[in-house]
Nucleic acid binder design. Structure first.
Lengths: 348, 348
DNA sequence: CACGCTGTTGTGAGCGCTAACAATCTACCT
DNA sequence: AGGTAGATTGTTAGCGCTCACAACAGCGTG
């Protein structure tokens, strides 16, 4: 069976020109909104375009303008709430700016994978890349890669000379810690995220700073790997300490570096017979949608992912279009969300 | 200040040809792996490519071959675990097939947004689109749009003549319901997802079918909107029924259409003083990473998102390359994950 | 030794578009 | 009326690549 329709090529600018009785250049002018085209001519062309269902060929355009108007996004762990939300924000912002955005998700942040991703995107002629690289080693690898186009990091810290956008993690951690101290707790314990993660370093730093400024010696830091399970383990340890009640600083408040680990901590405390928040207050970070329904609803820090996406695309486009040359770093403000998990007992 | 480096154009095939002392066509042959090139010549060309850091210009290539090797993905609600995971699977599979994939995330599934997304992708010359369209209305809109390229749906059902890939939602629901009946429950209540969602229809259908096959009259269906809050409300109602214990079918087992709502149900039951699973067993659907750490760990149905991604890209590429003409629909098998939330009391 | 075959390489055209320039047509001024 | 600036339109030359075809070498064969 023959499918003649498959051999019909889509109409070209020349077809439209013929249909409208003008030159292809006039069609081009109409399409790119050039002012010097008579209204009547413009009308003719527009009509012809509609009649033929014409569409500009982006490859031909890219070839002659040397602009693909394509951006790449490289992200690790895109199934997590944070990266996934950032991705949406990025994508929308890019579309508004008239760019196509192509995402590469990596399972792990190995240097080789990053290199391959950059390569894949480069071979498609992307004009710039946003990299969601929350681990120090990623950023390091990225900086050494020396990509042939501008790269903007998200949550990439600002120690290297790559431009980037981050949430003010340290401020978020300060807000939580201050909130707990204000509620009357003598100190605040901390379950940190894994080493090498910039977010986890910054959150720990903010927590530590507040305690030290209040003249409190920070207790030993417990460490997890962001997973509920690791939080559960840390929670068991904390439950033990809370019950033992001797030798160490009393455990009455815990700032957990993300909501998922906080879920594990809550479970461990509950299993240890410890009531939250009556005996131990718990706070998280991220405000995942489930946080509001944890037992009890979790106090946490919300990140404005859409804003992060918008600003990083803005920064990238500035670099591409030559409006920015410096390794600028933007910070987005976090928001403290107070819920039952840190409510002082007398208010409960 | 002048940046001379910016005026240097990237090397072209002609540059490589000159460097290697061959014609541009020979370079092209080496690049596309044509067999009839002498080994020594190939070597020369490869070296020259390396020396110059040459990269094929994808726009020029696309222009002449009329193949952009670009795929589009349209997804609604990408911040949710399911769509986000599918996205990763899709993206990896496409990359392996040598395609660039560009994602458009929509917040809502309105027909206009879908149309704009298709338009955006079409203007970049994508060769096909995978649409993650879990609502009946999306699929309807999509079918009416009549895109200028093949479209494959994910979780789009198979009533329309669009090819697609879905998890066997009905089978998953059957597995859960059978599991609960086998555990000795006289009936199974159901908290469904919102209407218009194909997944929620299929899950309800599977649940209903098992009950009817066992000669049990299905209890009234409660409905939520996938959110923990809506699950919480349904849970309050169920808690009331469980405690009232008269007039209605006893509430001892609940199949909730997704894990997030199950979280809400668990909380409501707990607040109503009902123990899970001792008094009421609860099961969910999706197996989000948190499910294992719910109070108690949730029995649920796992979906193989990577497989769904792989198979839908495979199907799409078959259509693009003319290997498939039918509106084939593939089903991926779900997996029941048994945890404490449905453990029979005597095993607990 | 002419012939045809296969393997290898080169030449020329053209994909659909934009940018630069040229040509023409107005409108307005002196 | 003549001249000129400005608006409007057309012409031409590539962008960097692949495809179709031509050219030529080396080889075995009748």
């Amino acid at each position: 069976m023959v499918h003649p329709a498959e051999d019909v090529r889509p109409p070209t600018m020349a077809d439209v020109a013929r249909e409208a009785g003008v030159s292809h250049q006039t069609v081009s002018r109409v399409l790119s909104g050039h002012p010097n085209v008579r209204a009547a001519t413009r009308e003719q062309v527009t009509l012809a375009i509609e009649r033929l269902g014409y569409r500009r060929n982006s490859a031909a355009r890219a070839l002659v303008t040397r602009r693909t108007r394509t951006l790449g996004v490289i992200a690790v762990n895109t199934a997590l709430y944070g990266p996934a939300s950032t991705l949406t924000g990025l994508e929308e912002a890019a579309r508004e700016e008239g760019y196509l955005v192509s995402t590469v998700s990596l399972r792990t942040g190995e240097a080789q994978g990053l290199k391959d991703a950059i390569d894949h995107l480069a071979s498609w002629g992307v004009e710039g890349v946003v990299a969601i690289t929350p681990q120090r080693s990623h950023v390091q690898a990225l900086a050494e890669l020396d990509a042939p186009f501008p790269v903007v990091t998200v949550e990439g810290g600002h120690q290297l000379d790559l431009p980037g956008v981050s949430l003010d993690q340290e401020l978020g951690a300060r807000m939580v810690t201050e909130h707990l101290l204000a509620a009357g707790h003598g100190t605040v314990w901390h379950v940190a995220g894994p080493e090498d993660w910039l977010e986890s370093e910054a959150r720990t730093a903010g927590w530590r700073a507040v305690l030290e400024e209040s003249g409190i010696r920070p207790p030993r830091v417990l460490t997890g790997d962001w997973s509920p399970l690791s939080g559960y383990r840390a929670g068991q340890e904390l439950a033990g300490l809370a019950l033992a009640r001797r030798g160490t600083t009393p455990v009455t408040a815990v700032f957990v570096a993300n909501d998922q680990m906080a879920l594990g901590v809550l479970r461990a405390l509950r299993e240890g017979g410890i009531r939250t928040p009556a005996q131990v207050a718990v706070a998280g970070f991220d405000d995942i949608p489930e946080a509001e329904y944890f037992p009890p609803p979790l106090t946490t820090v919300r990140q404005d992912f859409a804003a992060i996406g918008r600003r990083s695309i803005g920064l990238l486009v500035d670099h591409i279009e030559g409006r920015a040359r410096t390794a600028e770093h933007l910070l987005v403000e976090p928001q403290l969300i107070m819920r039952a998990s840190t409510r002082p007992p007398h208010e409960a």
